[in-house]
């Protein structure tokens, strides 16, 4: 019924030579850098490389040291808090904004431009401007105190207990516009007739969103989730710019740990082990997703 499987697929080596030449950069990148580089790093995470990589294997030593390091534990805790809140808030805020934008409003383009512009800015710029706004001497805290609320205290960047929430505020400011845009595109992809049918059925708007539209947007939500999540694991520049990991080590994150050990502390093995842990974290996120995507494609 569906035609001959081998039709239209020439197998001559020479006929596709140009395509193969054009794909050399991709093949090199995929195999040498992505695959080879990853394997190399994982392998060398089992060595005691210091200033230069040395193939002297020491088993799980680096990992034991890593998980015994308070700085790494703080980094992981911060990543967990930052990640969880970023996921929840950016999805909720992003969806609410997208739903509001989908109400056939006036000035839609203006609002979208405003919500999305932070995404065009680098994390360095984002971190520095929020460092300034959250500056307790001149920023929000002092402004609120000047309004008469003398005891008001909000100095996340100088308070190790809440510093990661200061980073979170900046991160959300930068990234929710993107989430809003992705979800808005998803909302616009919903068949207009579904909305009409729900109105004829007398289903209130919030129930239509909750029980019909959001379930229909599952693929969009999953994709968005994966994008947010892989961004969270990479978070680095934002912390460098906003807090430099401080006060003390209270806003350290894994990516910064890796960089510092590889390039500043000259303890490569430790950096490799930490980056391998980052890889594991990402794998935990994307393997189930890839499995779902891949499984879905096979069925189709």
């Amino acid at each position: 019924m569906t035609g001959q499987p081998h039709a239209g697929r020439p197998s001559q080596l020479l006929r596709n030579l140009n395509a193969k030449i054009a794909s050399i950069p991709m093949i090199l990148t995929a195999v040498v850098i992505f695959l080879g580089g990853t394997i190399w790093t994982v392998v060398y995470s089992f060595t005691n490389s210091k200033l230069l990589p040395r193939a002297k294997f020491v088993g799980f030593d680096q990992y034991e040291r890593l998980w015994a390091a308070p700085r790494w534990i703080v980094s992981i805790e911060n990543l967990a808090i930052y990640g969880l809140f970023t996921l929840v808030f950016s999805l909720v805020i992003g969806f609410v904004l997208a739903a509001l934008m989908d109400q056939k409003i006036r000035f839609e383009n203006t609002f979208r431009t405003i919500f999305l512009y932070p995404f065009a800015l680098s994390f360095i710029v984002t971190g520095l401007v929020w460092q300034w706004i959250l500056n307790p001497e001149f920023g929000v805290q002092s402004v609120v105190r000047a309004l008469g609320w003398e005891s008001f205290a909000f100095d996340p960047l100088y308070n190790s207990k809440i510093v990661i929430y200061g980073v979170l505020i900046a991160g959300l400011w930068q990234g929710t516009g993107l989430v809003m845009c992705l979800l808005l595109a998803g909302l616009r992809g919903i068949d207009e007739d579904i909305w009409k049918a729900a109105r004829v059925d007398g289903i209130p708007m919030w129930r239509t969103y909750l029980f019909i539209v959001i379930p229909m947007m599952r693929p969009v939500f999953i994709t968005t989730l994966v994008i947010i999540a892989s961004g969270i694991v990479k978070v680095y520049d934002l912390v460098v710019a906003q807090t430099s990991g401080g006060p003390g080590i209270s806003s350290e994150v894994p990516a910064k740990y890796v960089y510092d050990y590889m390039f500043l502390a000259q303890n490569l093995g430790q950096g490799f082990a930490a980056s391998t842990m980052m890889l594991v974290t990402v794998a935990i996120i994307i393997v189930p997703w890839a499995y779902l995507e891949f499984g879905g494609r096979k069925r189709a």
């Binding site: 794909s23 990148t29 995929a30 992505f34 080879g36 790093t41 990516a255 950096g271 990402v282 994307i286």
Partner: peptide, 20 residues
């Protein structure tokens, strides 16, 4: 190769930096 490339996009850069 394309699949490796796309999956590779999710690998944290820190993992591949030193080999590069």
């Amino acid at each position: 190769f394309f699949t490796i490339l796309i999956v590779g996009a999710f690998i944290p850069y820190q993992v591949m930096i030193y080999p590069i």
